[in-house]
């Protein structure tokens, strides 16, 4: 508890909790809509934006958000157009975005720590502004889900049926992917690229099989990722490890544990669905 007397520790904790809510809600939708690969693409393509901002001397966060919004909407377009090859095209954008970022950084004189902080995160160096921006994103995301819940549910479970019911699936998906891009950059700023993907996928994966509906899955995922974040931070403080990696390892340990429990259960009761 003595760790909490430091402001950076309190900010780190706050950032971790806000990221947990974002990841719990967005991660749930990402997992049930099978958009994990797209999220990875958005996160890596965002690198192009960081490089561009550094090279042109533009403010990093707005440039990155703009860049990844553009990339994500382009990917969304690709997905609705060439569905059967969407994964390949996302893979290309994924690599190109990163390469663009690296070349821009090469062209920028001097060593830049910003790029590293986006890769591994800088949860211990979160500013108040970052926290406010994350909170704002959280409000947007939760507002979107709360207002459009039945449409989102219909689109996620059975897109064809949603279209028959004349739910504007196309527009809904664009808004969702746009919000995802903003959320991913916000979370990345704090916990890093690698942790974004881990927190978006691991908690929802564990929560999915114990939840009877999406809302419960979102809440369970948020709680799980908060638990991972807090215990990871504690471990990193006690053993002087890097925070992002500690959080991921705690999450991964629970992931394997839950898989093990499942296997054990299905052996004892072969009739239960996996």
């Amino acid at each position: 508890m003595e760790a909490l007397q430091f402001e950076f520790m309190r900010n780190a904790l706050m950032a971790g909790l806000l990221a947990s809510v974002l990841c719990g809600v967005m991660g749930t939708l990402v997992v049930v809509n099978r958009l994990v690969f797209l999220s990875g693409g958005i996160a890596h393509a965002a690198y192009g934006g960081i490089g561009m901002a550094l090279y042109l001397g533009w403010p990093v966060l707005p440039t990155t958000v703009g860049f990844s919004l553009g990339a994500s909407l382009f990917m969304a377009g690709v997905m609705s157009g060439a569905r059967h090859r969407a994964d390949t095209l996302i893979g290309v954008l994924w690599a190109v975005g990163m390469a663009v970022g690296i070349v821009f950084v090469d062209l920028t004189p001097g060593y830049n720590t910003d790029l590293m902080s986006y890769l591994f995160g800088s949860i211990l160096a979160v500013s108040d502004t970052d926290l406010w921006l994350m909170a704002l994103t959280g409000v947007l995301v939760c507002g979107f889900v709360a207002l459009q819940y039945d449409w989102i549910l219909a689109m996620s479970y059975d897109e064809e049926f949603a279209r028959v019911r004349r739910v504007p699936v196309q527009a809904l998906r664009l808004v969702f992917i746009g919000l995802l891009a903003v959320a991913v950059v916000m979370i990345m700023r704090v916990v890093g690229l690698i942790l974004v993907i881990a927190l978006l996928t691991i908690p929802p994966f564990i929560a999915e099989r114990y939840s009877t509906d999406l809302v419960r899955m979102m809440i369970a995922s948020s709680v799980l990722s908060a638990a991972f974040t807090v215990s990871g931070l504690a471990l990193s403080y006690v053993f002087d490890l890097s925070s992002g990696a500690s959080i991921i390892l705690v999450a991964a340990a629970c992931f394997w544990f839950s898989l093990g429990i499942d296997r054990f259960r299905s052996q004892r009761d072969p009739s239960s669905p996996v």
């Binding site: 039945d150 449409w151 549910l153 219909a154 479970y157 949603a162 019911r165 739910v167 999915e208 009877t212």
Partner: peptide, 18 residues
């Protein structure tokens, strides 16, 4: 099949509309 949704919620989806 793995989607976390109850039978009641699947049926209620029929009430979603334009």
């Amino acid at each position: 099949l793995r989607f976390p949704i109850s039978v009641a919620d699947v049926v209620s989806m029929g009430l979603t509309g334009p």
